[in-house]
Amino acid sequence: MGGVLGKGDSPKASVPETKLETKITEAMQRRETAGSSLKSFDSIILKFPRIDESLRKCKATFEEFDEDRNGAIDPQELKNCFHKLEINFTDEETDDLFEACDINEEKGMKFNEFIVLLCLVYLLKDDPTALHAISRMGMPNLEATFETLVDAFVFLDKNKDGYVSKNEMVDAINETAAGERSSGRIAMKRFEEMDWDRNGMVNFKEFLFAFTRWVGIEDIEDEGEDKV
């Protein structure tokens, strides 16, 4: 396997796509027909602070559903969470989502994994009641934040196939940084941070995990972990 796995990466990322991940790709392709409102990669970067602030506000919700206070949400706690948020997924769909987002296979989702999961729910569910329920949980800006993340992926995925390729990432950054010689290097670094399984293609889930790292969401969960 090429490349060295970094913190938070998992060899599991290299297995073939699950039924759920195929569904995510198809949902993204449907969304991509509407196009993106973003005009440059810089406009995505400018939104980092606001996205970061919005996602951090989910911490209280995460803690509410972490019923045993062990810093992670287990499969049963996730089912309770979905029930309370009125997100109508079957047990099989919930288990698939949990497995897709529990990247370290610890049977417990950390905060950044929970954020990714909620964003995937947003993409998969054309269910206004679920979205209103999420808003009612004290996360009114979350829907707009998730839409920004979807929009960012749509902007990067020029050929609208549900994946971002290395060339698409280079093109997106070059559009912004025309004439800067470092832009290709920046694009490669960003792409490598996203492409865990080194297959040259990034799906929405991989993009979201990279994004939580870029805006520093992973750091929140590390704050108290060494004391355990």
Rank of each mutant, 00 (worst) to 15 (best):
L156A: 15
G71F: 03
A144R: 11
S14K: 11
F211D: 05
T25Y: 01
S135V: 14
N174I: 12
I103P: 00
L118T: 06
S43Y: 10
E26W: 06
I73Q: 02
G35M: 01
R136T: 01
A177I: 00
D102S: 08
C119S: 13
E225R: 13
T90R: 07
T33V: 06
E168R: 02
T18R: 00
F48R: 05
K160T: 10
N112P: 03
G3A: 00
P75V: 05
V4R: 12
M169C: 11
P128F: 02
T25A: 14
V4L: 09
F204N: 04
E105P: 00
G35K: 09
D66A: 10
G6Q: 13
V170K: 11
G162Q: 03
E99S: 03
V164G: 05
S183G: 09
V215P: 09
H83K: 14
L85W: 15
V15T: 02
E206P: 00
I24A: 01
T61M: 15
S37D: 09
P16E: 14
K23W: 06
P75Q: 11
D126F: 03
D102E: 08
R56N: 15
E86L: 08
A210R: 10
A172N: 13
D91W: 04
W196S: 05
K160S: 15
K84T: 06
F82L: 15
T90A: 03
F209M: 09
E143Y: 02
F209A: 05
V215H: 09
C58N: 13
E26M: 06
D161M: 10
I103N: 07
G138K: 07
I45M: 10
